[in-house]
Structures are given as C-alpha cells and as structure tokens.
Design a protein around this nucleic acid. Structure first.
Lengths: 119, 119
DNA sequence: GCCAATACTTACCAGAAGGTAAGTATTGAA
DNA sequence: TTCAATACTTACCTTCTGGTAAGTATTGGC
C-alpha cells in the first residue's frame, strides 16, 4: 500500500485513517512502541509472536513513510536499529483508544455468550 | 470472515474491533445507517458509489451476524428490506469517531503538503 | 404472455496481502 | 578460517478480498 495505491482521495476520515492502520500487525506495532517507547527490530519481532520478518519491515517501512514512526540506525556491528513513535503515531494511538475499548467489551461479551452457550 | 475465521481469540481490543469493521465498505455502511437511520438495500447501493451488490450483501450479512445492524424484511412485491443500526452498531460508530477525526486531520495535512509541493 | 422492480445469488476471475525459506552484508570472537 | 549476531532482502507461493456479469424469485400492470 505504502508507496503505491495509498494517499488516494479519501471518502471520509475513517477511510484516511484505515489506509494507514490496515495491515495485519500495524496496530500491534503501534501498541508495542507506545508501551516500550523504543524498540529494536528483533525486539519487535519477538514481541509480535507469529510475525514474519518480511511483513515486519514492510509494515515498519510503510508506517515510517506515513510519518507514524521514526527509524534510527546505529552504525555498529552487528547493526542496531531503533524504532519509536512520532507525534503523529502517538496521536493515532490516542484516536484508537475508544475503538480498542469497544473491542475489549465486545470480546468480553462474546466470551460471556460462549460461556452461556457451551459447545 | 463472518461465519468462518472470525471471533477468533483476539490479541487486543483493537484486534477484536478491527475484525468487525474491516471490509472495504463497512465503515461507510455504518456511516450511512447512522446518518439516515433506516435504509433499503437499493438506497445503500446508490449511497455507496462503486460498491458491488455481492460485497454489499456480504458485508450486510456479516454485520448482522456481528450484531451491528438489524435487517427487517417487508413481504411485499417487489420486496422491501430495511437496514438499521443496533445499539452495538451505534456504539461502534461512537468509538470510531476519534479515529475519523484523526483521519480527517491527516487528509487535510496531506492536502496542504501536496499543495506546497506541486507535481 | 411478457416486462418491470427489488433483493438477492452464483460462478468465475484478478489482484492484493501475507507466509516460507533462503540469501546478503559486516566485523569481532573463537 | 569459520561462526555468531543483527537487520534486512528476495523469490516464490498460497490465501483472502473484492469485482463482473449473469441468473433467480415474486407479482402486478400492460
């Protein structure tokens, strides 16, 4: 999405926000960086069980291009690269909070329902 | 997604909310129904320029199954089917509002940037 | 008998998203 | 000389998402 079809003309604000946040791991990356402040590539990989290296950098690159995260390279051997949220990334996280709470309530409700109706 | 892989174990609230809202037209359907209260199938189709009939009912069915919308059939000829938001749908819309505002600001910023850097 | 209107339904297809696994580059330590 | 550690990079493949276009069902009007 990043360099290709994004930033297209948006129909509404949700549309514009989704363009930036859609991607299997992006909201989790946002959450990780918000929680830890700064994380190395390998730390993120270990923090997101199941993510492939390919998708992880692809998402990180897109989010950097979208101004959500900052990438800092320390020229050492072995290399060290640190990722952190920009101001835009932090504000996006704030904007996602109510949605996250809604989702948590939904998950709670689903759990209660499936507890009431066991398989 | 609806009857198949959804309602899976969620990693976080965002995850659970995204599961319900991801789909090319879902947030727009939410918006239409929130704006008009009640809409017929054909009205929704005309209100979402570019949507295919297949995706429209597919999304409507999934959202109904997820408890976001209510479907009411009037047994007439030609048939009349009316869709509206449930309480859950309305609360989801509320939860999406900050994200929509964030997206609107982002779109505004992008427009300003591209105006400052013309092709 | 045929067509119009409405709300779907189906089969088929293209493109996007994401996974797997192997390879690259650098340099200090063993 | 070979290996370890880190952060990617690449080729290839599978799965998912969404689009196109045609078909179905019902009944009143012409």
């Amino acid at each position: 999405m990043a360099s290709s079809s994004r930033r297209g003309p948006y129909i509404c604000g949700i549309d514009a926000a989704m363009d930036v946040v859609s991607g299997k791991w992006k909201s989790l990356i946002l959450w990780e960086l918000d929680t830890y402040g700064t994380r190395r590539f390998g730390e993120l990989r270990r923090g997101l069980p199941g993510v492939s290296e390919k998708m992880l950098i692809q998402h990180l690159r897109e989010m950097e291009e979208d101004g959500l995260i900052h990438r800092e390279v320390h020229r050492e051997v072995p290399p060290r690269v640190e990722y952190s949220l920009t101001e835009h990334g932090r504000s996006l996280n704030q904007a996602l909070r109510p949605l996250g709470e809604w989702g948590t309530q939904r998950a709670t409700r689903l759990a209660a329902e499936s507890a009431g109706t066991p398989a």
